[in-house]
């Protein structure tokens, strides 16, 4: 069963509901698309994840030429690949190469999802949906990264992996105290990883929505409030838009970077 929860677009006259943009609306498959009783309807969120995937495949596919002298497109794809490769190299070392497909997929998927969600397509009547503003999405990505860390850690080091929770040079008397602290900080990782991205994306979009609400209601309330509230809010929005583009990149980078750092723990263990 799929609950049709459609947020109201306007709470009251002239007021904009800033979280309405995160509402998931099923597009089709509401009735009978299910796996083991769980409905898997194709929603606007799924649509934008598919769009992200397609854009990504077109982007990388278009640049995956094997020319010895690269064109612009190939240069862009190779630059992005080189960026992630450098990230892995500097955090994990030579052993990091084998995680390149995963970390590259992670980084580019989050980056493209973030950026596509910021596109001003509402101007032409299409409402972009930021899949990464849902912790169901970011959480799964975080759990995937965490699971890989656990699998690699235990496969490579066995139970010796637990020595990760006892930092080098810890006095023996301190081990009973340090161990639980380190363990908890380790276990919190997937939550912090997933929540950071979700919160950053959601906060940015809410901020933009609230400011645009100021612009609309300020303009509607008369000439005085238009110049007093509407215009400054609009100017601020322009700045925040630029900031959000930066945040979209930074959050994708942070997610990939932290995944690399955690993978380094599993791969090299101190």
């Amino acid at each position: 069963m799929f609950l049709r929860v459609t947020g109201t677009s306007t709470v009251a006259e002239g007021k904009v509901d800033p979280v309405h943009q995160f509402t998931i609306e099923p597009l089709f498959g509401t009735d009978h698309w299910a796996i083991a009783g769980h409905n898997i309807a194709f929603t606007n969120s799924a649509l934008w994840m598919v769009i992200t995937t397609l854009v990504l495949i077109v982007f990388v596919g278009g640049g995956a030429k094997k020319a010895q002298v690269p064109g612009r497109w190939q240069m862009a794809v190779e630059g992005l690949t080189g960026f992630v490769d450098t990230l892995l190299q500097s955090n994990i070392g030579d052993a990091g190469r084998k995680y390149l497909p995963y970390v590259f997929s992670l980084f580019t998927f989050i980056l493209f999802a973030n950026l596509l969600g910021l596109l001003p397509l509402a101007l032409v009547g299409i409402h972009p949906f930021t899949a990464t503003s849902h912790f169901t999405v970011t959480g799964v990505l975080a759990i995937m990264s965490f699971a890989i860390v656990l699998i690699v850690g235990f496969a490579k080091h066995g139970f010796h992996f637990f020595s990760l929770f006892v930092p080098h040079g810890t006095p023996a008397v301190m081990v009973p105290v340090i161990f639980p602290i380190e363990l908890i900080s380790f276990l919190v990782r997937p939550f912090s990883l997933g929540l950071r991205l979700f919160v950053a994306m959601m906060a940015g979009h809410v901020l933009l929505e609230v400011l645009s609400g100021f612009v609309i209601s300020g303009t509607n309330a008369g000439v005085g409030t238009f110049f007093l509230a509407g215009v400054p809010s609009f100017l601020l929005m322009i700045g925040i838009c630029a900031l959000e583009l930066l945040v979209a990149g930074i959050q994708a980078y942070v997610f990939a970077l932290l995944t690399c750092v955690y993978l380094n723990d599993a791969e090299n263990l101190h």
Partner: peptide, 29 residues
């Protein structure tokens, strides 16, 4: 909506994310 719709949409979200990310991982990665 992330919390309000959680019960109703988590399966769909997870499924489509895994499909899309899987595609990205296997086709691109």
């Amino acid at each position: 909506p992330q919390i309000a719709q959680l019960a109703a949409t988590y399966a769909s979200q997870i499924f489509w994310l895994l499909v899309c990310f899987g595609l990205v991982f296997f086709v691109i990665g």
